[in-house]
Design a protein around this nucleic acid. Structure first.
Lengths: 140, 140
DNA sequence: TATTGTAAGTTAGATATCTAACTATTTAAA
DNA sequence: TTTAAATAGTTAGATATCTAACTTACAATA
């Protein structure tokens, strides 16, 4: 018998994941960073300098939100803004040394989070879970 | 091969679900209501008058958040506050007629959302999915 | 070339959410 | 009985998020 609790559970898992990320980062002495900031840093670790527009797409947030998030990361010294030489509308976001230095911490937090999510699942079950989530997302 | 995308997908499904709820409610002429307001109304539909404290527990939000959410629902005319006669610290939240009248709309939106989530799953698969989500949540 | 449109980014204003601090009331302990 | 502790709820202040409107720069078309 279905309980129809999936939506609620998904919301609560997201909340729990966000809290865990914030508290793990604080344990490593990193303060003022929330998961969306982490998404931005993750994008920069993977792709190098990225425009505001591409950042917004990557982290699935609007451009004004990304402006606010990047402002914060600039204040905290993790990234810098840089105007594109050819097209003056475009701003590239770059990691600073401090930003680069954060990568091992992020990998650790990420591993801890994925351990909680995937723990107890076989490889196949994990793959099926991911496929199921992808299919759900596609139906919206 | 695991992609380790589950956390990200869960976050995006939540965002999509929230957007769907808001847009479906607006289609029915209901404005200014977000999913957390819906959680409060759902609690009232199921349990009748409830205290602020119990509401907070039920919807997994803090008391100050519930205060804000209830303020909004009062402004919009869906609920009223009522002091407990015996213990003056306690406030009960009651549905108004307008609040009760919203129940069918909520049921419809809820059905639409669950159709998206559970569509394509057999009964057993749905149950396993719910169990999996419950287990993940328990591990945090 | 001038005008019109499009694209990138920020600013403004609103809101849900949190933590911390506060008020008011009830309960417990001295 | 008086004082201390616990409980219910709100207020204050901060922040991430959104939509709408704005600015600036480039592109296209007349």
């Amino acid at each position: 018998m279905l309980k129809k609790t999936a939506v609620s559970l998904i919301g609560r898992i997201r909340d729990s994941a966000n809290r865990l990320i914030i508290s793990e980062l604080e344990k490593h002495g990193v303060e003022g960073i929330v998961p969306s900031h982490g998404d931005i840093l993750a994008c920069l670790y993977q792709n190098g300098p990225v425009t505001m527009k591409d950042l917004a797409e990557y982290i699935h947030r609007t451009k004004p939100t990304v402006t606010v998030l990047v402002n914060k990361l600039v204040e905290l010294g993790y990234v810098t803004r840089e105007k594109d030489a050819g097209d003056n509308r475009i701003t590239y976001i770059n990691l600073t040394e401090k930003g680069v230095a954060l990568q091992p911490v992020f990998n650790e937090v990420s591993a801890r989070l994925n351990a909680i999510i995937y723990c107890g699942l076989t490889e196949t079950e994990g793959e099926n879970f991911e496929k199921l989530l992808e299919n759900i997302l596609r139906r919206f």
